[in-house]
Design a protein around this nucleic acid. Structure first.
Length: 273
DNA sequence: ACGGATGTTCGCGC
DNA sequence: CGCGCGAACATCCG
């Protein structure tokens, strides 16, 4: 689920669900998600606190509460926030629950347990080294093509792999790296240092366009890629190996493996320069 | 039935 | 420091 657009949707939902609300209780099964805290520590820190703000940077969420408490939430590979009423059964893989003072429960669900939920006093992104190192958020901050080009020019990795580096840009993951390079007509196997300033600008525009489109679509709730059986793959190339290219219609989309992750592209539209 | 793949990130070693 | 690899984990698909 969670690259930048999916986390943005989560942030919008969470702001709506928590506006003006307090945490009446918190409970969680022991898991690596809450490290280094125990459920009891989290409950002690958050019980009775009122939600103040929810920020997003890249794939990261930061909750701030009355009294200066803060929480960093990362959805990992399979995390999501769901809201249920107190009297409804917990959704599958519910690992941590924030009980609100309006009769609802926010469930943090995470099949593979790669997510995080940890206290950050003051809710400061800068308080955690790995968050302080994040690059610009493509939607919130915008992408400065000159800055991006400078970074790309300094690495020998394939451009697709480089784009997933969160210190370069925050929020681009495996799906949107493939989608953006397809839109920009760049071969994902090219060395990042070979990408020209003009190509970099095209990539920057493509990232923003692909992400904006995904958010718009998911806000109008017809297309949900995750879970719901029968939902359609909304992407142009991701997970479409073997299908005809949606642009040229002449070649079939290919799947290759880069840095142990699947990359999808059209060998005709995205030819090496 | 089993091997392989799954949207992320971190830490280790060269 | 840059980079590649394996690990963390649980499920699903063919």
């Amino acid at each position: 689920m969670p690259e930048l657009p999916e986390v943005e949707i989560a942030a919008v939902n969470l702001r709506r669900w928590t506006k003006g609300r307090r945490v009446s209780a918190l409970d969680a099964e022991p898991s690596r998600i809450t490290r280094p805290h125990s459920a009891a520590q989290l409950a002690r820190a958050l019980r009775g606190r009122r939600f103040a703000a929810i920020e997003r940077h890249g794939k990261n969420l930061m909750f701030s509460f009355s009294g200066g408490a803060g929480v960093h939430s990362h959805l990992g590979m399979t995390g999501k926030w769901l809201r249920r009423r107190e009297d409804e059964p917990a959704p599958r893989f519910s690992r941590l629950r924030l009980h609100l003072d309006d009769g609802h429960v926010l469930h943090y669900c995470d099949l593979r347990l790669f997510g995080r939920f940890r206290l950050v006093p003051g809710a400061r992104f800068a308080a955690l080294p790995e968050l302080a190192a994040l690059g610009a958020d493509p939607l919130h901050d915008g992408i400065d093509p000159a800055v991006l080009h400078a970074r790309l020019s300094r690495t020998r990795r394939p451009v697709k792999v480089a784009l997933m580096d969160q210190s370069l840009l925050a929020g681009v993951g495996n799906i949107y790296a493939s989608e953006a390079l397809f839109r920009a007509r760049i071969d994902p196997r090219r060395r990042a240092s070979s990408i020209s300033p003009g190509e970099t600008a095209a990539i920057a525009r493509a990232i923003v366009a692909a992400m904006r489109q995904a958010i718009t679509r998911q806000m109008s709730p017809e297309i949900v890629y995750v879970e719901e059986p029968g939902s359609k793959n909304p992407f142009r190339v991701y997970d479409r190996a073997g299908e005809p290219c949606p642009r040229c219609r002449k070649d079939k989309l290919r799947r290759i493996v880069q840095a142990q992750r699947s990359t999808f592209f059209c060998p005709r539209c995205q030819r090496r320069a």
